[in-house]
Design a protein around this nucleic acid. Structure first.
Lengths: 212, 212, 212, 212
DNA sequence: CTTTAACCGAGACGGTACGTCGTGTCTTAAC
DNA sequence: GTTAAGACACGACGTACCGTCTCGGTTAAAG
């Protein structure tokens, strides 16, 4: 269920028992890493992902451009990373009573996330992904996959347990659950309000239940 | 049902009755207009919208950059216009027997369109719209609105005639019909295949029918 | 002593008693001609000749660009014409008692002219002339030639009458009289003051007198 | 006698004593600097200063436009620098026997310089200087000032030693020596020939001597 | 306690595209 | 046949970022 990140950044593959990973040379500066991610987040409060420039990040973080390019392949990767490393981003979910509840909770969490001030940034990341294969992979691995995996698991469990209809292709089901949320975010964000947030998950659930 | 275009481009300001429409100065060159749209379409076969540059269009169309900027506010507008003016883009639909059939046909048409070689371009336009208010408006008025208006009409008719459930908010319904298609296009385009194309519209229809 | 103008503008030659000059079509607009020259002069109060653009003139004069291009070959010609047609530009000189006085008066007049608010414009015209053969001709015919012809005449007369030394080549003499004035104007205009204005002509005169 | 250049270009900031001159970042590319100046000189053989474009220089020198703008404030500065850095431009003069000879030699040198294929370029630079304060300063500091300083020194020495008349203001004298040369170059360059070159300096000298 | 190697900041580099301006030419309808 | 208006192809402007490079200077493990 875990995917290896496409971000070069994965250095936390810690010490598999061996001290073999003793690298020579100056170690990566934690200060710089944090400054870069922080600056990125701050800048994104005032501008879109497309307006954001690597140069601006470097300047604000008081960091050489090279340092950014050394650790992230492109802007999308930096932004993705900055997004994930925001406090409260990987908050755990309470354990659901059943798969129906699980699905509803997951959708609610997704809506909540996209409704936050990060919503626009995520939409923009999704966008950038359309233009470049590389960005696509990064977005998929770091954002989409975890989301989809979780829902997929719930759906499959629900199907097994007879909670959900079995004749609906799982992949299609996922799209039918998540798609509308993203569509609303991107097509008419001004309608992305409390009403939708409250009702949609239960409407979506009906798709899985069918007239079973 | 008709929306006025956000493209500057609308010259059909027919003041038929009045002779007041005495246009001064050299009239707009039809040759240039066509060359620009054609060149844009041709270039989009080889590159993404983001890679496409106004300069490249101007060069290929043998046109001054100013001429493009004079008639379109930005790249998105040009691409949008080029897209719409493709032959067979505004093909009419056969008359449906009922509203269910109408919805299915509209979804099929949308899938067909996004599955064509223009699909990626549309996805990229949708993307650009995320970054700029201006592009957002252009995309909405020229692409999204016509699409949504048609479906909205069918849904509302179907509700009135008792063909569809009445307790589902129309706006939400639209998102639940269209969202999954766009999501699949943007999130995993490699799965945007015949199978989905065949089955999805009927799955979507079930949402509207409910267990009625 | 009269040179035919290089400005296309010479239309006032005709009507030799005959009504033969009955031109077909709309006659040239005197209103436009004046508006162009006036606007040019006004604009030159706020900007240099190089900053001045044909487009700006046309706009200020509420005139089509074509109209300007039809009657003047280039910017230099317009400016030259505007300069000459300023009120008080062709003020006549009092008759001199002898050739020495004539030379002094001519130099004083030149200094006065270059010291006026037109001085900078003239310097700039002289400049533009360095880049283009066309402008060179216009400047020479309309400004330089009249000036030089007059001085040349005085020098030659003075030589004949024994007022001036005969061993100094006339052309060289002219340059030695006029050159310093232009040089001061262009190289250090801030020193182009009353002192110079008062003393220079008499210093220059000494060159012609020699120790004769 | 030395003036600090107005060209940004002055990098000979020798902090020899202090080790404080720790330059950060990639050092300036000598290769680029030379390529830019060379290309400028080559292009000026085929076109005037006004026709010359920064873009053309960049292209010929295989250099980014930014690199030019980084080190020179404008075209005039580049051309000025290119001119000065030509081989044999700062050739030393033989020591003169007295101040009269010094003046003659300086004038001859100036004539020789303006008569060379750089003459037109210098005239054009002089021109550009008329339009912009900035260019004026650059031209004055890099070309005019050295020239004038040298002559001024000779004149003042000559006055002190009784070689030249004392009643002639030095500034005026300088203009009377140099002015005619520039005037001939700019007003009728076709007369800028051997004859003038041979005779003028001695005629000019007479001004300084007076009838003393 | 010196090498060695990877890191770091700063910033110059060759490029590409931007959106704007001005050129001189053209194409209308109006006068 | 001229005029005002203004579109046109073109070419240069000066700016912003891109991603790469080249410096002098850390920083720590390895020799």
């Amino acid at each position: 269920m875990i995917r290896t990140s496409a971000l070069k950044n994965d250095d936390h593959n810690k010490d598999d028992d061996k001290k073999e990973n003793a690298k020579k040379g100056r170690p990566r500066s934690e200060r710089s890493r944090k400054a870069i991610l922080n600056s990125t987040n701050k800048l994104l409060l005032h501008m879109s992902v497309q307006e954001l420039s690597i140069e601006a990040i470097a300047k604000k973080a008081k960091v050489g451009k090279t340092t950014i390019y050394r650790w992230w392949p492109n802007k999308t990767a930096v932004v993705m990373d900055a997004l994930i490393n925001q406090p409260g981003m990987q908050a755990p979910m309470p354990t659901p009573a059943n798969d129906s509840e699980a699905v509803v909770m997951q959708l609610e969490k997704l809506i909540r996330l996209l409704h936050s001030h990060n919503g626009a940034t995520i939409a923009q990341l999704f966008s950038e992904a359309q233009a470049s294969e590389k960005s696509q992979k990064i977005f998929e691995n770091n954002f989409l996959a975890p989301l989809i995996d979780a829902i997929q698991y719930s759906i499959e469990e629900g199907k097994k347990k007879g909670e959900f209809r079995k004749d609906l292709n799982t992949k299609t089901a996922i799209d039918m659950l998540c798609g509308p949320i993203f569509f609303r975010l991107m097509a008419h964000p001004y309608d992305f309000n409390g009403d939708f947030q409250k009702n949609y998950p239960y409407e979506a659930l009906k798709i899985l239940k069918g007239n079973a």
